[in-house]
Design a protein around this nucleic acid. Structure first.
Lengths: 306, 306
DNA sequence: CGTGCCAGGTGCCAT
DNA sequence: ATGGCACTTGGCACG
């Protein structure tokens, strides 16, 4: 067993099927360091999954960072640092402890103790650099277009972990505005019986009409879909489209807003402008898509082909 | 020294001024566990900063999570998990390895190996729960309003770190749209000589006019500021305001868009609608504010007081 | 590449 | 709480 108080753990690293512990002697007279190799205990534990260093020196951290960048591993750091951003605008953040994440696709997150949003970040596609400079570790993330750079100057590293996340799973988000559109496409009578879809995402001067259709009497139906309660922006958007559309001769133009509800003051305006409102929520749209699970593929393929 | 191959490190914990290493014997016949207490090496290293567990059992992870929640510590996990979200909409994410962050203010981030954005998250103000259930660790983050819940089911925990981030530093972001507004307020001749500011963030029916002023001939100037190239949305916004404003008798209404540039098709529309365009970028605005560093305080105070 | 639009947008501040 | 709006918005689709 370890002679108590004589050795201190410098850091612990998982490597292959071994756990490596790096120890320092405490005695100042005979300072020496040792690596100890220990076999991993559990078979269910992928011991090479996470490489962890507790309170590494900045030189060690730098070396590990370079290795991680080359191996395209994700890096998580808990460090005392200051952060500087320069690009589309610029920002400065004084010294303090933060959680820093560098991902394999070249994005960066700098998180403080609070808030959902990172205080500083860089989107995917950055080039990472690490260097030790005047007793600090300087990590840079440079994004080529638009040119912007994030500089993290670390004085003190508390934790450095690097690893590769194995993650092939699919992510599915239920019920988006696009789902509402698809629900109407596969089942137009959600709006009214006899509706014939003519087009969707139809380009008109100011933008794109969500759905463009004909009712059973040949009137042109223009549908604007909102997943949230529809307010003035939706009304304005729809009315802009109307200016650039006209019905068949002798027919009417029927603007319809499809949304779970109308925003507070919107009802009178909608009425005044001759816009119809059809209630449809995400839930219902999801159910419709579910029930058409097999057939909607065909329908959408048909639309895409046309 | 440690007899090689006889002991394996289960996890390492920083606690007070000691580093605690938990060891298992490898020999199956005489399986036993030991805690070893080692004094921390470096004085500059706040050894109680980060508590780390490499590959803890789910029960241990649960206990540590509960402690961290109670102590309002930040938690970082690398774990194999599946994630379920239900609330404003819903989502499902199958099994895979992810980085999970729980912050002291009750927000959650679930990050995959790529992408700037978290695949799942929860904003601040959530209540955290942890329980071990049928061989899995279930962590829930529930947000009361709007009611939504995030459920993380972990099968395998690779790393669990908990800590409190000491971070009092100020964050300053340079050159925002607000800075452009302030630059014009302290130096109205950025727009044109003789301009007199009357009001800003003036409420009109559809929203707020950025800056409301009079030119030297008494015409009413209505300014809409954009920090990015101004497109049709900016034009629409400004033209909406115009409908609800009128100049002094015998004077004109002069709508002006202030932006670094005009979006491609916007120029003819701006011309046709009688909107003026004045080029101003974030850079220039920042310089102006810099040069007025001392005096702008007074000016802004004046505005705030009025 | 720019332009337009959606997002479980988030965040800030107003009524 | 709801509304209006900026944000280093990010992200996707499309000319």
């Amino acid at each position: 067993m370890l002679p108590r108080l004589l050795w201190a753990v410098e850091f612990i690293v998982a490597c292959g099927e071994f756990v490596i512990v790096f120890l320092h002697t405490i005695s100042r007279e005979a300072m020496q360091a040792k690596w100890i190799y220990l076999p991993a205990l559990s078979c269910s534990f992928r011991v090479d999954m996470v490489e962890v260093r507790v309170s590494p020196s900045l030189e060690e951290a730098h070396e590990e960072l370079v290795r991680a960048f080359e191996a395209r591993k994700m890096v998580v750091m808990v460090a005392e640092c200051s952060v500087n951003y320069s690009g589309r605008t610029g920002s400065q953040l004084g010294n303090g402890e933060r959680l820093i994440v560098l991902k394999e696709d070249g994005c960066v997150l700098v998180h403080r103790g609070r808030d959902y949003q990172p205080v500083n970040w860089q989107p995917s596609g950055c080039i990472f650099q690490s260097q030790v400079e005047k007793g600090t570790l300087v990590v840079k993330a440079i994004r080529p277009t638009p040119l912007e750079s994030l500089t993290i100057v670390t004085e003190n590293m508390h934790l450095l972990a690097s690893f590769h996340l194995k993650d092939e799973a699919a992510f599915s988000l239920h019920a988006t505005e696009e789902d509402m559109q698809r629900a109407i496409l596969v089942q137009p009578d959600l709006i009214e019986a006899g509706l014939k879809i003519v087009d969707f995402e139809k380009k008109v001067a100011p933008g794109f009409v969500d759905i463009y259709a004909l009712d059973r009497e040949g009137n042109t139906v223009v549908i604007e879909i909102k997943k949230d309660p529809a307010g003035f922006p939706a009304i304005k958007q729809l009315s802009e489209y109307l200016k650039h559309l006209q019905p068949a001769p002798g027919r009417r133009l029927r603007p319809i807003i499809v949304a779970p509800s109308l925003a507070k003051g919107a009802q009178p305006v909608v009425a005044k402008m001759g816009i119809e409102f059809k209630q449809l929520g995400l839930q219902k749209a999801a159910e419709v898509l579910q029930s058409h699970a097999s057939s909607d593929q065909k329908v959408l393929k048909g639309w895409l082909g046309s």
